[in-house]
Simulated assay, not measured.
Amino acid sequence: MKDEKNAADETRNDTPQEIKGSNTVKDPDEWTTGDEPMTGAQQSYLKTLSAEADVPFDDKLSKAEASKRIDELQHKTGRELSE
């Protein structure tokens, strides 16, 4: 049982608040896959944020661009994570 507990501790999923400021959080401009099309989750969330912010939704954004736009719209709509 001890080994299982240690394995579970090592694979714990951190929330964004827990890793904020960590060197594991990269700037989207440095992502190796940043030029790929945005993910389905990004697209869905951006549609929601765009509607709330009353701004056009751009479905042609890359992963990195979508991440930056999400940050921008979270700030505009008051949905940004508290630090």
Rank of each mutant, 00 (worst) to 15 (best):
S67F: 00
A7T: 02
L73C: 08
K26G: 01
A8V: 11
N23A: 07
A8G: 03
L49P: 12
E36N: 12
R69F: 01
D58C: 03
V55F: 03
Q17N: 08
A66E: 09
E4C: 01
G40Y: 03
V55L: 01
R69E: 12
D58V: 02
Q74I: 02
K76P: 00
D35P: 00
E36P: 05
V25G: 06
W31F: 13
Q74P: 00
Q17F: 11
R12A: 14
Q17R: 14
K68W: 03
T77P: 05
K47D: 06
R69D: 02
T32E: 14
N6L: 15
A64T: 02
Y45I: 09
M1Y: 13
V25N: 06
L61E: 11
Y45G: 00
K20W: 07
Y45E: 13
G40T: 11
S22D: 15
D59A: 12
G34A: 09
A51C: 00
Q42W: 09
S67Q: 14
V55N: 01
T33F: 13
E65N: 02
D58G: 08
K60V: 05
Y45W: 13
P56I: 02
W31N: 08
A51R: 14
T39M: 05
M1R: 10
E10W: 00
K60N: 15
L81A: 07
T32Q: 10
D35Q: 14
S67H: 06
E30M: 05
T77Q: 05
E72T: 04
D59Q: 12
N23R: 14
A41W: 10
L81P: 04
E4M: 11
Q74N: 13
D54Y: 05
I70A: 02
A51I: 00
P56S: 12
E30W: 07
Q74A: 05
E80S: 14
P28Q: 10
A53K: 01
G21S: 10
T11D: 08
S62V: 03
E30Q: 14
I70V: 04
L46T: 11
E30I: 06
W31C: 08
N6I: 14
P37Q: 08
A66V: 09
I70S: 01
G21T: 07
D58L: 08
R69A: 05
P28A: 12
E18L: 05
Y45L: 10
K63W: 03
G78F: 05
K2W: 00
Q74R: 12
E72L: 03
V55W: 02
P56V: 02
H75N: 08
G78P: 04
D14C: 10
A66H: 06
R12G: 01
N23M: 04
H75W: 05
Q74M: 13
D14G: 00
I19Y: 09
S44M: 09
N13M: 09
S82M: 12
L61C: 09
L49Y: 06
D3L: 13
T15Y: 12
D3F: 08
D14W: 15
K26D: 07
A7V: 02
T39F: 08
L46A: 11
S50G: 07
K60H: 13
A64G: 04
R12P: 01
Y45R: 15
D58Q: 09
T24C: 10
K68V: 02
P28Y: 05
Q42S: 09
K76Q: 15
E65H: 01
K68L: 04
T39G: 11
G78R: 03
H75Y: 11
